[in-house]
């Protein structure tokens, strides 16, 4: 068969056009599974809080918060964290980044924090989020939950504890997460380079 077998050929073909990684049904099953994993580890969330990383991580954080709150029957602390002022690409890109809102209405000192973001790629956003987070105090521990882990292109030694889906996409591709709240549909797309 030579070097290009059917699987490779499929992959090459598939990577030429946008493809769906998770559709509506699987998308919500995945989130539900992540919620149950969290409940397994954090039980009643008495000393735990969920913090969504701005801007895109907040949709996932809100969903997870709502599901867990309904499941355990008591309200879980939810925060939003902006990383703009801690990013390492300030003055290194053409645009000046617009900050988003940070909303932390509880003490993080000695709390168990679950950072939530949608796609883990280079790990640089999470690095900034960790720095931004400790400006508010010293958490007991910090865990990371992501919907998609693009594991091949990490720039920093950062790993997620809870992962919705791990993928081996190539660098030029883009992973796009769509949310009912924003785009009207729950989907994860892999877009080829020329669609970016």
């Amino acid at each position: 068969m030579g070097l290009v077998n059917r699987e490779n050929a499929n992959y090459i073909y598939a990577s030429m056009k946008p493809r769906i990684l998770l559709d509506d049904n699987k998308f919500n099953l995945t989130i539900l599974r992540l919620c149950h994993q969290l409940i397994e580890n954090h039980r009643k969330f008495e000393n735990s809080a969920i913090i969504g990383v701005q801007q895109v991580g907040v949709h996932l954080a809100r969903r997870i918060h709502d599901i867990i709150t309904a499941e355990i029957g008591s309200n879980v602390d939810l925060g939003l964290l902006d990383t703009t002022f801690h990013r390492d690409d300030f003055r290194r890109s053409d645009t000046i980044l617009t900050p988003s809102e940070t909303q932390l209405n509880f003490q993080i000192e000695n709390k168990r924090i679950i950072l939530v973001d949608d796609v883990l790629y280079t790990g640089r956003t999470i690095r900034a989020a960790l720095d931004a987070l400790i400006d508010y105090g010293r958490p007991l521990d910090v865990e990371l939950l992501v919907l998609v882990d693009r594991r091949l292109f990490r720039n920093l030694p950062i790993q997620a504890k809870y992962v919705g889906k791990t993928i081996d996409s190539i660098e030029s591709e883009q992973v796009k997460v769509e949310w009912k709240e924003k785009e009207g549909t729950d989907k994860i797309w892999i877009l080829p380079a020329n669609e970016n």
Partner: peptide, 20 residues
Amino acid sequence: FETATHFKEVLSRPIKKVPT
């Protein structure tokens, strides 16, 4: 004004300093 609103929030944090 929009950016200042975010810095006002930074100034209300326990650590009022960012590395930007």
